[in-house]
Amino acid sequence: MTTVINVLQALILVLGAPLVSGIVSKIKAWIQRRQGASIWRPYIEIAKLFRKEDLVPPSASWVFRFAPKVLFGTTICAVAFVPVVHPSALLASRGDFFFLVYVLALGRFFLSLGALDGGSAFGGMGASREALVSTLAEAPFLLGLVAISILAAHADIAGMVMWTLQRNVFDISAVHILAFTSLAMVVLAETGRMPVDNPTTHLELTMIHEGMVLEYSGPSLALVEWASAVKLHALLALLISLFGPWGMASTVSVWGTGAALLLYLAKVTVLMILLALVESVVAKLRMYLVPDFLGVAAAVSALAVIFTTLVKG
């Protein structure tokens, strides 16, 4: 029964992901007083791209074709670690949070390789920027998770979620606040959202993610787009399960799972509204200010780790 729920959780994260990005762009459109595209549009686009021809630049090698598949595969692998409605996950006992962080990094490494292999100037520029951002985001991502795992005395995500679930809402400590702040900043950077990267446009010399995928087309592009949507959804779900898991089904039952699913939908909606608000209010940072942004995240997460000594002692 638990396995069924775990498979269901992974399916929710993977299949619901285009809907999440659709809803975020719809809310952004509303804030800008536009009508906006339908929230189902990402599905239609992905389906359309899968039917199209896959064009490969003549100078590209097998890496270019291989990269989107690795990216999608690693993202799916990361999804299998994230609890949604029940404090367990498909691969929870097979790896810890280090694995989660680096499996995401592996996908990004291959996407950068693919972008370099494509041979366009924008691809190379995007790849070098992506390398900068992901190098700087790695430390706060890891340290934020380390802080929580020290408190929970568990290294796997499901164990950390289980520990938080057994606590009272009022027992939040400084560690949780600091870790949440740094991880939220990391999520913005990792998913290429507004203060770091602009997900809506190809028309800027400042683009990071969009620059990397410029040479891709057809099914490859569909995989890349889908993978980035899944990554956004999975990281939002990770934030929810680490910092606000209350309401998850602690026992395995149909009613409990259903209620937990409804609560999860409510929580993810709140996060999506927050994300859309941040993206509409905050201006994009100049490329040279991105290290400052992530430096603050790193400092906050280092503080979170230091604070665990206070909370325990």
Binding site: F170, I172, L178
Partner: peptide, 8 residues
């Protein structure tokens, strides 16, 4: 617990 938000 709310004084923790003051740190933020």
């Amino acid at each position: 617990s709310f004084s923790v938000f003051l740190f933020l």
